[in-house]
């Protein structure tokens, strides 16, 4: 199945899959006016170095914004699993959340 002579136009099929367009975006959580006196959860999702980095973030808050209460946590399941309890805890126990990735 040779192509036409050089110089003529050739028609080929698009090799790419079709977008499924199934993801519905969510709005971001409302922001805080200030972090003064607020509780922030710092959640390490499990990549190497993330926990130690977030410990330094905790230390930064203690030095720079001492009224902020920080709670450092490991994500319970690994980083590829959803964790409804983590989201629930954040809603009820924290004013804001910082996720730390590391790696």
């Amino acid at each position: 199945m040779a192509l036409k002579a050089a110089g003529s136009l050739v028609t080929v099929l698009d090799p790419r899959g079709q977008p499924t367009n199934v993801i519905e975006p969510l709005a971001l959580a409302p922001r805080l006016d200030s972090l003064e006196g607020k509780t922030i959860h710092l959640i390490d999702i499990g990549f190497g170095g993330g926990w130690e980095f977030l410990e330094e973030v905790v230390a930064w808050f203690a030095r720079t914004m001492p009224s902020v209460k920080t709670v450092l946590r490991h994500k319970t399941g690994n980083m590829f699993l959803d964790e409804p309890q983590m989201w629930q805890d954040a809603r009820t126990e924290a004013h804001a959340v910082i996720f730390g990735v590391g790696g």
């Binding site: 050089a6 110089g7 003529s8 136009l9 050739v10 028609t11 080929v12 099929l13 698009d14 790419r16 899959g17 079709q18 977008p19 367009n21 993801i23 519905e24 975006p25 969510l26 709005a27």
Partner: peptide
Amino acid sequence: PKAARGAPRPRLLRPDR
């Protein structure tokens, strides 16, 4: 936020050399 929607890809690409 608006959903990012990819346009359906055409079956054929534009003819070319």
